Computed example of a mutant assay.
Amino acid sequence: MPFRDIASHNTIMTAYAATIGTIHAARHLFDGMFLRNAVSWNIMINGYVKVKRPEQALEVVRWMAEIGVRGTAVTMVGAATACARLGRLGAGREVHCAFLRRFEEYNLLFWTSLVDMYGKCRDVDAARKVFDQLIFRNVVCWNAMIIGHCVYGEPGDGIQLFHEMVGQDHQHGLLPDEVTFIGVLCACTRLALLYDGKAYFEQMSTMYNIKPSFAHYWCMANLYASVGLLEEAEGLLRSMPEELKAHAFGGLLGLCRFRGEWELGERIVLRLIELEPRNSVHYALLCNVYACAGRWEDAHRVKAIIKERDKKLSPGHRLENLNGIINQFRERQPENLEIYAILDDLVSRLKVK
């Protein structure tokens, strides 16, 4: 094999560390390096963070510290983000202290990641202290604070932060983005503020020219469902752009499972089949709806239809919930990774009781 210098190794590792399917190749290359610089370590740390393996990211950080390699601000950002993903407040505080000991420069990216970490670890007071000390705040900083309160803290405070961000006169405040409104709609869901949620949803397009995505429609569907208006939730989802409907109806189907609304669930999955008649997953969903409702004759009828179409149910297939819907949608829309990272947290927090 021809000799590769550190820069060549780092370039190859960067490519490998970009996806979950090749991250192991990046690690294999990293482990085989005789010499590594800070960039090498940062590629592995932030690569693991990117592919949602925060535990491995922290392992690399600890290894780096044990052998005495001095990290950079980028290292600290990766470490703080990993702590946020894992909800490890103690480790996050250690990262905070380490940055204060080693670095004097002002780094907005790190302080923003710290706000995000404290928020996701449910220490919104600490997040606010860091936030208040920021010399400059962009929309990402504000989003970290708003999401921290709306999802993990007091949702009313999150809505108040939104109004502080945009400014009362809408001239001197920052413009919100898609992520901002996910937080605001989440807060409305937690507080069952249907009227306010509808108003914010309308403001997205009329006031800020933001086109609602699947995430926003799903939050609104949860808001309707949280106050018992499942029919209205279905009506809202019917008004969505056609390319988003199949995913959103699958999300509402999960709500029907929680509530035992099997007739509505049947109607939704039949709509899924209408939208994508060649998708065998939808027939499996219908079979599971009937099975969960105890309608065994109908379940066997659907199985017979599947066999006739030479389609087979996947072993262990279960009624699809929002996790599956979001994973499918994320694969098709990789440019919105920040939104889907937030949705990963919403999945376990916004189930209708």
Rank of each mutant, 00 (worst) to 15 (best):
L286R: 15
I273L: 11
K245T: 04
Y290K: 07
R278D: 15
R301S: 07
P315K: 10
K307Y: 08
S280G: 15
R295L: 07
L285K: 08
C287Q: 15
R295M: 14
F249V: 01
Y290S: 05
E276Q: 04
R238A: 11
G316T: 00
E297W: 08
E231A: 06
G260Q: 00
C292S: 14
G265S: 09
R278V: 06
L264Q: 10
G316D: 03
L272E: 00
C287R: 14
G251R: 06
L264T: 08
V289A: 09
L264A: 03
C256H: 06
C256P: 01
E232M: 09
A291M: 11
E261C: 03
R318L: 08
A233Q: 00
E308I: 11
A299Q: 10
K312Q: 14
I305D: 14
G251L: 10
G316S: 02
I268D: 00
G260R: 00
V302H: 10
L237Q: 02
K245S: 05
E297A: 13
E261H: 00
E297M: 11
K311N: 07
H317V: 10
L255I: 14
L270C: 04
H282D: 02
A293R: 08
R271A: 01
G294C: 01
E231R: 08
I306A: 09
W262G: 06
G235I: 00
D298L: 14
D298T: 05
I268M: 04
V269R: 03
R278T: 13
D310N: 15
E231N: 07
R309N: 12
Y283W: 14
C292A: 13
D298S: 15
C256Y: 01
G260Y: 04
R271D: 09
S314F: 09
L286G: 11
